[in-house]
């Protein structure tokens, strides 16, 4: 009996990976917009805070997607993306906390 991976090749339509990518995409859009405002540093911090919150929510949804269910390059990439989203979740949360503390002054 040979051990066959659940998916022999890159699975284009695997719903889990599509879901992960979907949340990545939305998180990227929200956090990019938040960063743009944040980097310009011209007020509008409330909007940046709101966008960071939405982005963080999407990152959490993306990280919650199980990406260890298959083998092969596509899944390995999904696992790397998972790690990167975790890193950014922590960093975005830190930044959000910082902005909120400034905001309440």
């Amino acid at each position: 009996m040979s051990l066959t991976p659940r998916l022999p090749g890159p699975g284009p339509g695997d719903p889990l990976l599509a879901k992960q990518k979907h949340h990545h995409r939305r998180a990227f859009e929200y956090i990019s917009k938040a960063l743009k405002i944040d980097e310009e540093n011209e007020g509008q911090k409330e909007l940046a805070i709101e966008l960071y919150r939405k982005g963080i929510n999407e990152l959490e949804l993306g990280i919650a997607v199980q990406c260890w269910g298959g083998r092969g390059e596509v899944w390995e990439r999904a696992q790397r993306l998972h790690e990167k989203m975790k890193t950014n979740l922590a960093m975005a949360k830190d930044r959000l906390q910082f902005l909120e503390s400034m905001d309440s002054l």
């Binding site: 960063l35 990439r77 993306l81 990167k84």
Partner: peptide
């Protein structure tokens, strides 16, 4: 997607 996440990391770090 990975590159985009990297970009966010860099900007957040800055």
């Amino acid at each position: 997607a990975s590159q985009e996440q990297d970009e966010l990391s860099q900007r957040l770090a800055r």
